[in-house]
Nucleic acid binder design. Structure first.
Lengths: 125, 125
DNA sequence: CAATTGTGATAGTTCCATTATAACAGAGGT
DNA sequence: ACCTCTGTTATAATGGAACTATCACAATTG
């Protein structure tokens, strides 16, 4: 996986990194038990400060994507709290779909786009 | 429509207000040509500063939900740039659906949730 | 003229994001 | 034991965003 930070983006560096890790897990380039680069390695690799990487890893840990094993570093470990995830999904979608409706994007177009994106992630779900 | 600010939320006040206006338009409680409360009225009504309301209105204007008519105030005026809206939708969904996949939320569950939410907005779309 | 509209300038406060430097405990390799 | 690497914490400094406050101005309506 190739991690890169868009230094021109308005999105915070730690947020960009979080999202890329989640994308990597969803696309199964990182699987349960795999280790991510250490905070120092990752920091030097993508050109940001160690603490910014640490902040991203801390958030990912809290949200149930990683666990930390001293010496091994950050290990992909999925803690599935489906109920909470569904609640957050509903909240995000309510605003997102409101915008779609205002912009004349039909329900079917949203469904089609979702199928298209979901095909990039693991096989059968 | 009842506008309220959650002062305990991490979300910025201007962002909360933007989303509520968009929700109001999507649910057709505000229609093309309707006027929103003036920046001063709205500010006093929901208990925040005039300039924070102005910031929200400016963003909504730039994103094509309002136009500003001196003396009348903020008028709902939908400028549909569907191509841009689709691009932003795809970007938002790619991260959102990655999280769903990691949390074992199936494609069908996402489709069902979308139908449920979309039913709250205008009729036939 | 009076009142209200959006808008702009300026200033102050608070908080977040980011960087920098330093230090510490825990674990593996030699 | 010693060295090295891990995450983690503390502290400080900087820049910028969010929010508030006050004053002011051009434009429009009654």
């Amino acid at each position: 996986m190739w991690f890169t930070i868009d230094f021109e983006s308005e999105e915070a560096y730690y947020s960009q990194l979080c999202n890329q890790v989640i994308l990597g897990i969803a696309m199964e380039q990182y699987k349960e038990g795999d280790t991510l680069p250490s905070v120092r390695q990752m920091a030097e690799m993508i050109g940001i400060n160690m603490h910014t990487v640490n902040k991203a890893y801390s958030i990912l840990k809290q949200e149930g994507y990683l666990k930390v094993d001293n010496r091994r570093g950050a290990v992909v470990s999925l803690d599935v709290d489906k109920l909470r995830a569904m609640q957050e999904l509903q909240k995000s979608l309510s605003v997102l779909l409101a915008k779609c409706h205002c912009k004349n994007i039909t329900r079917d177009e949203v469904h089609a786009l979702i199928d298209e994106i979901y095909d990039n992630y693991g096989g059968e779900d």
